[in-house]
Design a protein around this nucleic acid. Structure first.
Lengths: 196, 196, 196, 196
DNA sequence: AATGAATGAGCGTTCATTCAT
DNA sequence: GATGAATGAACGCTCATTCAT
């Protein structure tokens, strides 16, 4: 299993750094190899081609990302708490790894449609977590029964993604974790005054 | 003013078509020139470089897009109605121009950070429209006073953008305008049961 | 018609020189471009890819080669004279262009099967010339009726080709045209004493 | 002596198979090693480099090839019979080993000038066999005295080689041994009617 | 002797941009 | 203004060979 060999992770971490620092289009394979401390050809012992580095990077990092969110939400009782924890953990994790934030929010979006579809595939698991929380919320009588699951997912993901992207484009100059409460509130209650 | 000469618009329209049909990375300047019926060199009499075509395209098309939304929202009375009209008009316009939807939601995202910042600049005007509606809503007593304007804008834009992108990636197979009401409701009331 | 533009021939002639001097495997496109006095990219305005340069080179040069042989043999009366003229003209032409001799006898043979089949296609015309001379010889009562046309062609071509290749591999140090008479004699009479 | 160790022959046989099946340019050292059932590095315990595999392959196989021809021609009395046996045995041996025929007639020709000169060196022994037969034929009064030995060798070898190459390129679809008689006749008597 | 992971030099091709006409 | 032929920089990937084990 190549994924357990040290060079596999070494190359992926180098790729994150190189892409964050140079931008997607200036991240040549040779640059990644150099940063990883291996020869160019070594890359191809662990990855099929350049795109495979990026897909693997996303799978590896987002896999951990989603697992952490699954774990944190599971440790909460109500759907509302779970949803808050989802928002907070989402922000916390990207806050904790500035390079990864740049790569996932800005650079990897420049990839072609093909790669983006593979990325979406990885995200399905995240959307499932959201679905389960929504279902729980409905069962608890907290959320409306009539909700269109897909639209809700898109609202939640779209809001989180846009929030993080803006924060990254503002060079991560403010603390995004501080906004978890307000974002959670917007998602749960919308703009309206309570009781409206 | 070059923007008023016929070839200027001719080239921009050709660019939209070529990019929608071939994808961002297969849209060479020579292909755009051919579709526009001009010589490659002529492009450079109207645009500084390739990126300038894309920025101009976005300015031109999004300018009209936002004007239409400004006009439609102005003709409504309450903030709630205005917000609904904003959502609906946003969806309607992209529904009406399939090529443009593909280009703005998928292809132009593959451009580099630099271009994306210019795109964001164009979108500022759209965000202003949202800001004004939010202010009105607060004044009307409809929306909470404590709302963080930036977060609200990000929530609204993120939700609309994610909704449209998903629709485009699903090959525009369902009617997105039909979802305006539900999306509007999610933005105004969130997930919670009314009264919660 | 690209074949009539000066750069087309310029590039082909450069290719012959470069290949003769550096060998097939050390003849990079950039080297050919430099020798031709054009930019690398210009090559691709006239040729589909590197292999297309080589195929075109062969077609161009062997086309002239065969035409000359057709012309020379046509100006003779008997099959025996025609055959002699074929041998002599074959030798003369390769003698007259040392670079071309190296390229056709040694370097182009290193190409892959695909290219070699295209080369064989060009040579069909040469084989037709031989066929006609053989037919004439039979009609004249000079050659045996029972000859297997294909074998005869292979004997003639194989003999000429091997003779020239040996001469090229010996660095063209002797005069191969001088051997036309003896080669012709071997083809017509074989090894046997007259009357045997 | 490495040549007597089992892995030496094992690797050479693997090389013949791999080259015949994949073509010269798709026959990587690693593929040959795999087919031979040894590690890549092991190849270099038995051969100096890749070219050395090919040269050794040719020496090994052509050595046997020529020995067989020497043996068969020695068992005949007259030069004419010996020459016939040479042609027939040449054809028979390549007929009997389809892989070897492909490798020697097509694939090994794609090697560079350097390798081809080493190949020619191996063939010298074959040319010597021809020389001796020619000399005998002259002494017997069967062949002309005035024959240029080198030209005759080239005629014989060129004819045989071209004949076999054509047969291989036609995917060995007909029986080439059947043509030995006619080819022998062409070599001995040429195209001319007997008595001309 | 045998292994196989690691190395790194080498090259065909594309395409945005220029500029002489 | 309009043309389009010409430019040339830039890069992912392969594979023969090495060498620590």
């Amino acid at each position: 299993m190549k994924k357990n060999k040290p060079k596999y992770k070494q190359i992926i971490d180098a790729a994150v750094e190189v892409i964050a620092e140079n931008g997607y289009h200036s991240s040549q394979v040779s640059k990644i190899a150099k940063k990883a401390g291996v020869a160019d050809g070594t890359i191809y012992l662990y990855f099929k081609n350049k795109e495979d580095i990026l897909v693997s990077l996303f799978q590896e990092k987002m896999g951990q990302f989603i697992e952490k969110i699954e774990h944190e939400t599971n440790s909460r009782q109500t759907a509302e708490e779970k949803l808050f924890k989802l928002v907070e953990t989402h922000f916390e994790q990207l806050s904790a790894d500035h390079h990864l934030a740049i790569v996932t929010q800005l650079e990897l979006r420049q990839s072609n449609k093909d790669l983006r579809q593979k990325i979406n595939h990885v995200l399905k698991r995240y959307l499932n977590v959201m679905d389960m929380i929504i279902d729980e919320g409905v069962e608890e009588g907290l959320f409306r029964e009539s909700l269109d699951r897909r639209l809700v997912r898109q609202m939640i993901f779209g809001t989180l993604d846009e929030t993080v992207t803006n924060w990254v484009m503002k060079d991560q100059r403010y603390n995004i974790v501080d906004q978890a409460k307000e974002v959670h509130s917007l998602i749960v209650h919308g703009l309206a005054r309570s009781g409206q």
